[in-house]
């Protein structure tokens, strides 16, 4: 099976995905994000995986997303299956997808503050008797 990794910037992202769709990649397998807090600049990276069953080939698209501008175009119009994945990325990392049909939290309660999978978000651990667990903010 062929596989390929493409690095694009946020402006080209939608165009690249449109071409991938035209090339016959029927399936969006996964859409997630990585927080490179204090390790890399820019801080966030969006990772999207595609599969073409007909061509027996995979593609991975990586998009660097700047900390100051956490906006990127949605791909739900091309791949409807991306809907919940984008909501999860929004919920967990705070990356907002423009023109998404329903850009709300999916896992955490609606009134939740913060984005739990960011590296600077504490685990929310509470001290436990006999374990000396320090309180993490």
């Amino acid at each position: 099976m062929k596989s390929e990794v493409i690095n694009v910037n946020a402006e080209e992202y939608k165009e690249v995905i449109t071409n991938i769709k035209k090339d016959g990649y029927e399936m969006m397998v996964d859409l997630t994000a990585v927080d490179w807090y204090r390790k890399k600049e820019p801080r966030f990276e969006l990772v999207v995986q595609f599969l073409s069953v007909s061509k027996n080939s995979r593609k991975t698209v990586k998009v660097k997303i700047n900390d100051e501008n956490l906006n990127i175009q949605t791909i739900t119009d091309l791949y409807p299956g991306a809907n919940f994945y984008e909501r999860e990325v929004f919920d967990m990392f705070g990356i907002e997808f423009e023109n998404h049909p329903d850009m709300t939290r999916i896992l955490m309660p609606d009134d939740w503050v913060g984005h739990p999978l960011r590296k600077n978000y504490g685990s929310g651990r509470i001290p436990v008797q006999f374990k000396n667990a320090p309180k993490v903010e």
């Binding site: 955490m108 739990p116 978000y121 504490g122 685990s123 929310g124 651990r125 509470i126 436990v128 667990a133």
Partner: peptide, 8 residues
């Protein structure tokens, strides 16, 4: 699960 997501 001593974390933010679950009721302790």
């Amino acid at each position: 699960f001593n974390n933010y997501a679950l009721v302790q």
